[in-house]
Design a protein around this nucleic acid. Structure first.
Lengths: 191, 191
DNA sequence: ACGAGTTGCAACACTGATGACGCAAGTTGA
DNA sequence: TCAACTTGCGTCATCAGTGTTGCAACTCGT
């Protein structure tokens, strides 16, 4: 590939990024938004969007692929397999929150048709489950709660925290993990 | 009104109920589903749906209104203002779960334009906040957690539990409240 | 059997979104 | 300046969903 081609491709990829980010902004507010609205938010013509993405479906798939990659990197960076469970839980949470708040819509559609994306997604899923298992074995998680339920609660709290636009990711992560492990009750009045 | 009219109206209202329930089933799976799909699920012709509901928007509004009323009744039935906080929390949770699992989509769109529906919704919201305040004053809820966050966590857990199709509402409610108050951690390894 | 009311069916017009073109104008590196 | 490439704009055809209407058929209670 020539330098010319490389420079031009770089331009093109910048446009792609711009469109993906605009699509996320628009679709997270209104999942039924038109390509026109997405193009407008990206500051390009609608035809340009269609030139980059063959169809609306292709655009959403690309968003899912991009978000999934970011997601995987965020989890990876926390070394969830080698760090002590509790520390890993904090790290993963903080990193994921950073990504999730920016790619909320895309990640909700992460059940992509693309097998490669599905693989990465399944990989992250399994890493998460391993972490929870390690946490339980280490005595951080109660043994009498359904691991599946614990994971669902964790995801729900992630989802909830990601909606909060203000606040440092680290502070949000700290509150999230605190709530996940201790709940919001005092312990008084319980059997 | 004659007996004839009453009988016929009763028939008509049964059709309306059928359509509302079908719409909930279809739209909860795919919010962008067409009127055609809703009609098919209800076992009626598309034109019949349009005869009962002037527009798609009117249908969704009617769903929201119906669900909101069910919702308000579920909360009301738990006497959240007079029962001890912890008991009320269990009762409200169990009752709401029963409704929510059947009217998931409709309740997510409960921010209706209809002022009457909005009033009922705000009423429930306030009842919930009063309950949480009472719980905090009674020492059931920790004083060092943001009440707004506690409420969000509660809603998130409700939402999550409502997805689970199997299991008794009472058992789900018990697990939910347990998780809300105690979390899923052992307390070991925390500062 | 009669009549009021409701339904299904077929047909219609309307709208908005989608996706594909060609062309002129702009940018960027060579 | 040239060549490759991209973009914006206008235009087009197509399609799906929406909402309306007329008519025949059906089910009630009387």
């Amino acid at each position: 590939m020539s330098d010319t081609t490389r420079a031009l491709r770089s331009d093109a990829e910048r446009t792609v990024r711009t469109i993906l980010e605009a699509a996320e902004r628009v679709l997270s507010r209104n999942p039924a938004a038109s390509m026109e609205q997405i193009a407008e938010a990206a500051g390009v013509a609608r035809t340009t969007v269609h030139r980059r993405f063959a169809s609306r479906e292709a655009l959403v798939d690309a968003m899912a692929a991009w978000a999934t990659r970011q997601f995987a990197e965020a989890v990876e960076a926390a070394n969830p397999d080698t760090t002590p469970p509790l520390v890993a839980l904090y790290q993963v949470t903080a990193n994921v929150l950073r990504v999730k708040s920016d790619w909320n819509f895309a990640m909700s559609r992460a059940l992509s048709a693309d097998p490669e994306v599905a693989r990465v997604h399944a990989d992250v899923e399994e890493r998460c489950e391993r972490l929870f298992r390690r946490a339980q074995e280490a005595g951080v998680l109660r043994g009498d709660v359904d691991p599946l339920w614990a994971k669902r609660v964790y995801y729900a709290l992630i989802h909830e925290s990601a909606q909060v636009r203000d606040g440092e990711p680290d502070a949000l992560a700290a509150r999230l993990v605190d709530t996940l492990l201790r709940g919001v009750g005092t312990g008084r009045g319980l059997a």
